[in-house]
Nucleic acid binder design. Structure first.
Lengths: 218, 218
DNA sequence: CTCTCGACTGTGGTATACCAATATGGTATC
DNA sequence: GATACCATATTGGTATACCACAGTCGAGAG
């Protein structure tokens, strides 16, 4: 799962908040920290930029900041993608696909750590996208989940939220297993709207504490 | 409109088929042709890879080939994006936005060249995405239009196709101006399905001729 | 004539030197 | 003391040298 390439290590550092949102990055400054020279560092930064994890501020690099407007737009976008994904998955998925999806839904056990819950949720939504049969939907979902990763981490801090996510994933998987496309689509939309709401409340309420940790939220 | 950066020139060369789909590219081989050294060439190739215009074949670079399965998946993906885009645009667009959109629709005049028709169509769909108010939908539409550019070029060769595209764009704009969201969404879906069908017929019927020109279609 | 093996050419990957532009900080002047 | 200006350090952008690897072509052995 862990990617020990320079790109993977930089990505992990950003997603784990080791590199704070909004933090300025210099290519030469990253050389000693990651033990690589500017050429591969630049390549990794360019790739991270295309994924929305790094940005340019003029000519300088920075870790992509957290932005409430962007989160809202991402959830709207995700609802477009994922409702269609659920519908297509219902039309196309094999029995085995759906059983694996149900297993992934049950794996996101509430007793686990926030990290496990987050990764399990990521796997669930990516598998759902995969069985939709459209690789562009899958790529778009992967991109959205990546962009939302750092904020989703906030939401999944409370055991109550993890329980709710778990139950909602199970509802989606059950509806798909029952062949009820409409219910599955509605369950997906409910899940996203609930998650969005809980998440943005977390961000808003934690904003001051976050800022105290050096994490700016626009 | 033209981008004289190295990236822009490489992109144009691919989209205009000066660099044939499937053609192998070597970083050093591009140096004399584009008058730049490997470093910026590599950067441009990596960016084009993230946009789906260049690919890697093992360690080697190649111009992204044309692939009928991919075209089908792209149109399915695009229908997901653009039906939602139309709905959101109908909810949010100002009167000025919609009038500009209608103007763009009428600009795609049937008497123009294929290139003009294609660029006008691109502008229409990008403007529609812009007034949806969601930057991620807009970026995704831009990406889809870029990936489909070379194949759309085939479809727009006949004046008859250009007429039809023009009429369909006008229908969408009219429905939006009338505030009829449902009709606009249906007109968008009709437009895409018709375009998809005409396009894939063009590709299929031209496949042999294309191959004779060195353009492989999988 | 065929097959195998080796030298060679070309590939991308990386490190690094150099350049121009810009931000910075200290100093001198008002 | 404030401000303007200049030296300097740091930045990203680019060109290039070197490396390891792979694919190819040719020569030599069977």
């Amino acid at each position: 799962m862990t990617d020990d390439s320079l790109y993977g290590r930089l990505r992990s550092a950003i997603l784990s908040l080791d590199l704070a949102p909004g933090q300025r990055l210099s290519e030469r400054g990253l050389e000693p920290e990651f033990g690589a020279s500017r050429t591969p560092i630049r390549a990794a930064l360019m790739r991270l930029e295309s994924e929305g994890l790094a940005q340019r501020d003029g000519k300088n690099w920075m870790v992509a900041p957290l932005n409430l407007d962007e989160i809202r737009a991402l959830y709207e976008y995700r609802e477009v993608l994922e409702s269609a994904t659920t519908r297509l998955a219902s039309e196309r998925a094999s029995r085995e696909d759906l059983e694996e999806l149900a297993e992934l839904a049950s794996t996101s056990d509430a007793g686990e750590t926030p990290e496990h819950s987050l990764d399990a949720g990521t796997s669930f939504h990516l598998e759902l996208a995969r069985i939709s049969g459209n690789p562009f939907l899958e790529d778009a979902m992967r991109s959205v989940l990546t962009r939302l990763y750092r904020t989703r981490w906030l939401e999944v801090q409370s055991a109550e939220s993890r329980d709710r996510v778990h139950a909602e994933h199970s509802s989606i998987a059950s509806a798909l297993l029952a062949g009820d496309s409409a219910s599955a689509e509605l369950a997906t939309i409910d899940h996203l709207r609930g998650t969005d709401e809980r998440l943005r409340q977390s961000v808003a309420s934690d904003r001051l504490r976050l800022r105290a940790s050096g994490i700016a939220v626009d």
